[in-house]
Write a protein that binds this DNA or RNA. Structure first.
Length: 446
RNA sequence: GCGCCCUUCGUCUAUCGGUUAGGACAUCUGCCUUUCACGCAGAAAAGAGGGGUUCGACUCCCCUAGGGCGCGCCA
């Protein structure tokens, strides 16, 4: 395969969510693996709804996920290209002027639906005479422009879905140009795919029908038709589609919740595929797991709690070097021994703050049996301490008091950490150190 | 309403006419840690329903049910 050129084409009208993330990752990682180019294309032809704030947010999100684009283009800066394409389509008679108002069209659609008919545009504008057109223009009506579809069966070989076909005879001629002269998504998308030499269009299956229309436009414009890959969409546990609905699963929200980008990307790429969903820390490795022919054609349920589990598993094996800077930023960098001791108890990296406090203090000890704790304090080994100290100490306490098992450990854990759960005390004890241990055993906060 | 696609353990999936229907996550149990967790090991758990075709169907065909997507002067 020659080097692929792919694009992720969000419209900056909101924050991107887990569904968009899946598209972005599939494109970016496929390009990376094949030595190709990953283009971020802002589909911002809808000037009214597109916001710079969202464009910035999308770039931040891609950066955070580890897939910054190789190239970024904005459709809002490329109108000349679309104008030229529209003229060419008019010249060859594929783009025709229509004068119905949105209200009229809406009314017709409803009426067709009510009669059990598909809500297809009837091409009335194609039958308009020059006089009628002139009269409408004279009334001040401005036209919108539709692409005249060939009523043929359009087929393509989809990398995910295999042989696909759409009967264009059952489709409305798509509006390409609005009454105000601005463009809808369809034409700029094709023009840019041609201009940017996009080799693979990887996107959600909500675009399957569009594909047939776009293939006709590619042909009308004489452009090379890219390879298509339409993956299934994600649905929520309760079964509703989320690709266009659930905003709370925004990448920003996930990031703010303290999730690791690798947890998000692992789930986004692996869910709904034949690969086992597991935390993959390295994007290169994740890229190697992508296989379009092994992406399911059925919608996959996206379970938010699975993300939490993945995140925890990822952290449990995360090396110190990978988090050192972030621990420092959290004021919780107590060294590699500390990280290795606590990471198994973390769901989020920032939870390390809590254990840093347990080590450095202040901790208010919980002591229920004063006599037992005093006896334990008396048996404390001399410094220096290491990871074997805990065992030596507890053996001594056991020999002295006859207490063993949970009755031995839980009171000590409560006295030393103030908590009934946590990392292995053998690792924690030398980190807490003799001074604070003695203070806590005596009942003082330290 | 019409069109396209889909339906295997709770979840994501493997199987592409003959298998004890395999794996992963979650769950449960055990082991380890003389503690909770982490880790390790094991267990339980599935072909939507009905018709065909065939010696034989999860696999091919039809119907039904359920689900997703599409049918915008949204993208």
């Amino acid at each position: 395969m020659s080097k692929p050129i792919v694009r992720f084409a969000p419209s900056p009208t909101g924050h991107i969510h887990i569904g968009n993330t899946r598209v972005a990752l599939l494109n970016a990682l496929f390009a990376r693996r094949e030595g190709g180019t990953f283009i971020l294309r802002f589909d911002d032809t809808d000037l009214a709804r597109s916001k710079q704030e969202y464009a910035d947010s999308i770039e931040t999100d891609l950066e955070w996920l580890g897939i910054p684009p190789d190239v970024t283009v904005r459709q809002s800066e490329r109108f000349d290209l679309y104008d030229a394409a529209a003229e060419r389509l008019k010249d060859v008679g594929r783009l025709y002027a229509c004068y119905e108002t949105p209200e009229e069209l809406e009314f017709r659609r409803k009426r067709q639906l009510a009669r059990g008919l598909p809500p297809i545009y009837d091409r009335a504008a194609l039958k308009l005479t020059d006089e009628e057109r002139a009269r409408l223009e004279g009334e001040g009506r401005r036209p919108h422009w539709r692409f005249r579809l060939d009523h043929v069966n359009v087929a393509w070989n989809d990398l995910v879905r295999g042989e696909c076909h759409v009967d264009c005879g059952s489709l409305s001629d798509p509006v390409l140009v609005r009454e105000d002269g601005t463009y809808l998504y369809t034409l700029p998308s094709v023009v840019d795919d041609i201009d940017l030499k996009i080799s693979h269009v990887i996107r959600g299956e909500d675009h399957v029908t569009n594909t047939a229309v776009q293939i006709q436009i590619f042909e009308a414009l004489g452009g090379a038709i890219p390879t298509f890959a339409h993956h299934s969409l994600l649905i929520t546990a309760s079964g509703e589609g989320l690709s266009k609905r659930l905003g709370h699963l925004s990448v920003k929200g996930l990031r703010d919740a303290g999730l690791e980008p690798q947890a998000v990307s692992s789930l986004a790429v692996l869910v709904g595929s034949a690969e086992a969903v597991r935390p993959v820390a390295d994007l290169g490795e994740l890229a190697r797991l992508i296989d379009f022919s092994h992406i399911s054609r059925a919608p996959a349920k996206f379970d938010e709690s699975e993300l939490e589990h993945l995140n925890a598993r990822l952290i449990h094996e995360m090396p110190y070097e990978a988090v050192r800077g972030r621990l420092a930023a959290l004021d919780a960098d107590l060294g590699e021994a500390f990280w290795n001791a606590v990471r198994g108890n973390l769901n989020k990296v920032r939870d390390a703050v809590e254990w840093a406090r347990v080590v450095s203090g202040p901790v208010t000890p919980v002591i229920e049996d004063r006599a037992f704790i005093d006896a334990a304090a008396d048996a404390l080994p001399a410094a220096p301490w290491d990871t074997a100290t805990w065992k030596a100490w507890t053996e001594a306490v056991k020999a002295k008091t006859g207490v063993k098992g949970k009755a031995l450990f839980m009171p000590l854990r409560l006295a030393l950490t103030g908590l009934d759960h946590g990392p292995e005390l053998g690792s924690l004890l030398p980190l807490i150190g003799p001074e604070r241990v003695k203070a806590r055993l005596s009942g003082q906060a330290a």
